[in-house]
Simulated scan of single mutants.
Amino acid sequence: MYDQPSDDDLRHLQLRHGSRLALRHLVEAGLDVLPMPGAGQTLARWRVLAEVAAHDLSLVKLFEGHTDALAIQAELGGGLSASEGARWATWCAEPPDARVIAEEERCTAIRLSGTKAWCSGAASVTHAVVSCWNRDGEPWLAAVAMDQPGVRVTDEGWHAVGMADSASVDVRFDHAAATAIGRPGDYTRRPGFWQGGAGIAACWFGGALGIARAAHALMGKAPDPHRLAHLGAIDAALTPAAALLREAAAWIDRHPRDDARQVALRARLAVEQAANEVMRHAGRALGAGPLCRDRAFARAMADLPVFLRQSHAERDLAALGMLASQDVGKEPSSWML
């Protein structure tokens, strides 16, 4: 049985290492050893992601990328045999102006060249799983060690105030040695793609939970009716989002090899909406004071809107609507009590 880390584990690490935990602290403490998605304990995995997110959203951006890289390699096989304590990233954003090309050498050995954008934690990780393209124009995944001459971490590409500590800069590859993971196209074909996408919603939920906890703690002993109304709105937003995440995790564990796209999109969009409601009501309940005087609260309120934009907004809504419309002549089963 998986022994889930608790919020106390994070507090103990914070006492030991100071208020700003780093990815290496979580790895050294063994808190990155999570159940694989779809292996029967998906909710336990998401609870850890949510607790880290409630503590620090930039940190969970790195932590989720690290645990996702481990899950990808476990699912597809291959990758690098990294030393104990290795800190991984997952860099699979594909903006049109930044593309990495993979040239095959022998067996699984390949060479990477090009620019990868939005590389969170590039200056602090030891290895990365990177999306790339072969000469036939097919998408591929590669594992690459960062400590080599063909890898250059820049200070370009990230100017945001929110999520500033994720340091999501551009990385340039110049004939860098790498190892192919799976076969071309495997990244999005594998069941873990949408299972991991739903896990991102757990991170967003954790960010909203951290803000809600702060709002709850700052209400005071005798909050006025207006503050209580805002707290009630926060409760009404978070509670159904949490229920939907629990339902999504249970569905994934019951259907580990099925396409979880609809389940993931529904969870992501519902949690995004709930997170926006939590931020709106927390700000109106507490006023400017915590935003100006409470560093952790102010940082969370700045970080979460940026992290939420990992959602594709109306494109995701349209995709979910398309899936819902495919049940011709009847409403989706998820609408029924």
Rank of each mutant, 00 (worst) to 15 (best):
residue 123 A to L: 09
residue 136 D to V: 12
residue 78 G to I: 02
residue 123 A to M: 15
residue 72 I to G: 03
residue 122 A to E: 05
residue 71 A to H: 09
residue 88 W to F: 09
residue 122 A to P: 11
residue 110 I to P: 00
residue 49 L to E: 00
residue 67 T to L: 05
residue 142 A to Q: 00
residue 103 E to R: 14
residue 86 A to L: 08
residue 73 Q to G: 10
residue 82 A to T: 15
residue 119 C to T: 06
residue 94 E to W: 15
residue 142 A to V: 05
residue 63 F to I: 00
residue 53 A to L: 00
residue 56 D to A: 06
residue 137 G to M: 14
residue 140 W to G: 07
residue 153 V to H: 05
residue 103 E to S: 14
residue 54 A to H: 09
residue 43 L to N: 11
residue 84 E to M: 15
residue 77 G to V: 12
residue 119 C to M: 09
residue 73 Q to T: 08
residue 91 W to M: 08
residue 62 L to V: 01
residue 104 E to S: 07
residue 138 E to N: 11
residue 98 A to Y: 05
residue 112 L to F: 06
residue 52 V to K: 00
residue 94 E to M: 15
residue 45 R to K: 13
residue 101 I to H: 10
residue 106 R to Y: 14
residue 88 W to M: 01
residue 107 C to I: 09
residue 54 A to L: 04
residue 62 L to D: 01
residue 68 D to E: 14
residue 148 Q to H: 11
residue 144 V to P: 03
residue 44 A to N: 07
residue 135 R to E: 12
residue 50 A to V: 02
residue 115 T to Y: 09
residue 62 L to E: 01
residue 121 G to K: 02
residue 76 L to N: 08
residue 131 S to M: 06
residue 140 W to F: 12
residue 90 T to N: 07
residue 150 G to I: 10
residue 49 L to S: 01
residue 115 T to W: 14
